[in-house]
Simulated assay, not measured.
Amino acid sequence: MTKRAEGKTLAILAADGFEEVELTSPKEAIENAGGKTVIVSLEHGEIEANQHRKHGMKIAVDKTLDEVKADDFDAILIPGGLFSPDTLRTNQKALDFVSAFFEQKKPVFSICHGPQVLISANLVNGRKVTGFKAIQQDLKNAGGIVSDEPVVVDEGLVTSRNPDDLGAFNDKIVEEICEGKHDGQRESVAA
């Protein structure tokens, strides 16, 4: 297998209640391509996954938001789940961390309910996006140009709908992290 993502590091921003497969599957895809992943959360210890609303595995936090900056990474992933995005979207450090990836023109990946974090950081206005069916109207209300497709790519911003789309989403994650910075990556257009 080719190690085309060798030398690339992906920040995975999550909190308790992330959808297990939306973190583990992209993590495995990057690592299989030779890249490194770092689990970033609000506190040290472990965060617990959900598996379709049931408790899932626990995963160790590598770094807290107080210990990282976007400069340390090549891209960021925000997995979905019902609770993790809700927790992150109300945390200013999380919003600032995600915004810094846009400012540095680095790839940003988000799936399912994860784009709610992008909404709260005012990063979807004028951007092509998708997300879980239940948040597509929220994305539209925030100024996003929403498509109900497995994967939507807009200049380094890659969004996806749900676990059924992980194959295509993971392929795009590896491709985009290998491409690196995107000059067209930008914060959202002012409303």
Score class of each variant (00 low, 15 high):
T2S: 15
K3S: 11
R4T: 12
R4M: 09
A5S: 13
A5F: 04
E6S: 13
T9L: 04
I12D: 02
I12K: 03
D16F: 02
G17T: 00
G17V: 00
E20W: 08
E22L: 00
K27M: 11
A29M: 06
I30C: 11
I30G: 03
N32Y: 11
N32D: 13
G34L: 04
G34S: 02
G35D: 08
K36H: 12
T37R: 02
V38P: 04
V38H: 08
L42I: 13
L42P: 02
E43K: 15
E46T: 14
A49D: 07
N50F: 09
Q51K: 14
Q51H: 15
H52D: 12
I59E: 03
D62E: 10
D62V: 02
K63N: 09
T64R: 05
T64D: 00
K69M: 12
K69Y: 06
A70G: 06
F73V: 05
P79T: 02
P79W: 05
G80Q: 10
G80K: 02
S84R: 01
T90N: 15
Q92W: 06
Q92I: 05
K93H: 04
L95Q: 07
L95M: 10
F97V: 05
S99V: 02
F101K: 06
F101E: 10
Q104L: 11
V108W: 07
G114F: 10
S120R: 13
A121Y: 00
A121R: 08
N122M: 06
N122E: 13
N125Q: 13
R127M: 05
R127C: 01
T130W: 14
T130I: 04
K133C: 00
K133F: 12
A134V: 12
A134Y: 10
Q137D: 15
K140P: 06
N141K: 14
N141G: 10
A142Q: 08
G144R: 05
G144M: 07
G144H: 09
I145N: 14
V151L: 03
V152F: 08
E155H: 15
T159E: 07
R161Y: 06
R161I: 00
N162I: 10
L166P: 09
F169D: 01
F169P: 05
D171G: 08
I173S: 03
V174G: 02
E175T: 12
E175M: 07
E176K: 08
G180T: 00
G184I: 04
R186A: 12
R186H: 14
E187K: 15
S188C: 07
S188P: 08
A190F: 12
